[in-house]
Amino acid sequence: MTIDLVIRQTLQIALVVGAAPLLAGWIRQCRAWLANRVGAGLLQPYRELFKLLRKEPVVACGASWVFIATPYIAFATMAVAGAIVPMMTSRLPLAGAADVVALAGLFALARIFAALAAMDLGTPFGSMGARRTMLVGFLAEPALLMVLFTPALISGSTSLAIIVRQLARHGFILYPSMAFAAAAFVMVALAENARLPVDNPETHLELTMIHEALNLEYSGPHLALIEWAAAMKLFVYIGIGVALFLPWGIAQGRGLATLPVACALFAMKLAVGGAGLALIETLLAKLRLFRVPEFLGIAFLLAVLGLLVRYLVGH
């Protein structure tokens, strides 16, 4: 392992951890603009995190170690997931440690811990949130895998680095199958990140919340870690989307010279992705909880259609 690789990996982790709140701020700002509001500015999430981190840690009575460990596990899982996805460069030492399936597994690990922590106190809202999270999770997982299968079949491997290399090598080509996969991926990403129309990140409405019900009992630094992890998850998801569907411009070479350009390109893609997400969230209304399986079912169907179309037309 050369020093070059270590620098890349460290840079990547620093980027994911450091820039994730910025992306969250950008999305909020876009939503504010779309709703004709001024918005709180791009840096608002940092201020919130900083404020939470400074507070005294308070833990509910009767909480076990599962409850206390979960914020750290969530944070670490998302940071590791961010370390694996090729964002600026496909040459990452950790990229060989996990492919897309393992990435989905890492998300599942975080989800299971979040659900267990929510059940730890035995509050009704907590277990309701746990149940709903697991519901969305087990429905989203097959859809996500089907989405990932199409690029995996095109490139012959489930490794994200190889997918990026294969797709980027052929130049700009329209893959009809990838269009389907992209549509399905957006739907899955919305559901997995607790965004509209599956969950509303802005409210704590008792009877409809999913993600917020999970971290009701957290406060101070623990809450900061969880919120940070959620921002990183969204960041990583958009990163996966970029790697799969817009891989052009991700640096392939060995040197560090190409990184600044790749970084700027990636920032642009992220900005576009975030704005798109804000647009979707502005246009859609929240679905009833029991329409969510239908929503994810359609995502699954789209992904499968992509797979079939790929088989039919050969690309």
Binding site: V58, V59, A60, C61, L121, P124, E206, L216, S219
Partner: peptide
């Protein structure tokens, strides 16, 4: 960390039978 009663959206946490 300091311990405090669960928040539970402001509802007092009643008997254990109220759990899921």
């Amino acid at each position: 960390a300091r311990r405090a009663p669960p928040w539970n959206c402001g509802h007092p946490v009643a008997g254990a039978r109220l759990q899921d």
